Simulated assay, not measured.
Amino acid sequence: MATIGWYLLAALSEIAGCFAFWAWLKLGRSPGWIAPGLACLILFAVALTRVDAAHAGRAFAAYGGIYVACSVAWLWLVERQVPDRWDLLGSAVVLGGAAIVLWGPRAAA
């Protein structure tokens, strides 16, 4: 799978895992949400380690932009709250930053 695919899987898994706890603790859902939430968080960690990056810090930094954009998509698609222009602008800014971190030219080591 390509780097962007691993990032998207990581983001979806992390958001779903965290949302499971949100549903339990903030929306009054059953504690039965914990097990799938934990499974999603484990999948998130595994997916993020599959990203093609030489250093964890750079992979995690770039992931931050993907996470923000996917969270805004989650807001819209799952929570049925239409993102406003600030959500969209913020997502575009962090995606630009993620691209710079991940694919910016590097001096030869």
Rank of each mutant, 00 (worst) to 15 (best):
A69V: 06
F60N: 02
P31R: 06
V93E: 01
L12H: 01
G32K: 05
R106Y: 05
H55K: 00
D84A: 10
K26N: 11
A35V: 15
K26V: 09
P31H: 06
G64Y: 02
L89K: 00
G28V: 10
G28I: 06
F21E: 03
A98R: 01
V82D: 02
R29G: 10
A92T: 14
W86P: 12
I34L: 15
M1I: 06
V101S: 13
H55P: 02
F19E: 09
I15M: 04
L9D: 08
R85N: 06
L25I: 06
S91N: 08
G104F: 11
P31M: 03
S13I: 08
A73P: 02
R58Q: 10
G97T: 09
A109D: 07
R58Y: 08
I15W: 04
L27N: 13
S30N: 07
E14H: 07
I66C: 03
C18R: 01
W22F: 14
F19P: 00
A92L: 15
I42Q: 03
S13W: 04
I4A: 07
G96E: 08
F44R: 02
W86I: 12
R50I: 00
G37A: 12
I42R: 07
V78I: 13
L88N: 05
A54Q: 15
A109M: 07
R50W: 02
K26L: 13
H55E: 05
L89H: 00
L25R: 15
A69L: 05
V93W: 09
A92D: 12
M1C: 03
A39M: 06
G32E: 09
M1Y: 11
L77M: 14
C18L: 07
A35R: 09
A11Q: 03
L41Q: 12
L9Q: 05
G17S: 05
R80A: 10
C18E: 02
G65R: 00
Y7N: 10
C40T: 08
A99V: 15
V68A: 14
W6D: 04
P36H: 04
V72S: 03
W6F: 14
I42K: 08
L27E: 14
A99D: 12
A10C: 06
T3D: 14
L95C: 10
L25Q: 14
W24N: 12
A45L: 09
A2Y: 12
V94F: 13
G28C: 09
A54F: 00
V82M: 10
W103S: 08
L41R: 09
G37D: 05
A61S: 12
G90D: 07
A56V: 12
Y67R: 10
A108K: 14
H55S: 03
A54Y: 01
S71P: 00
I4F: 04
Q81V: 15
V51P: 01
W76C: 11
L27R: 15
A59C: 06
I15G: 02
A62L: 07
M1K: 06
P83K: 13
L25T: 12
Y67E: 07
I100S: 00
G96N: 11
S30L: 03
A62S: 14
A92C: 15
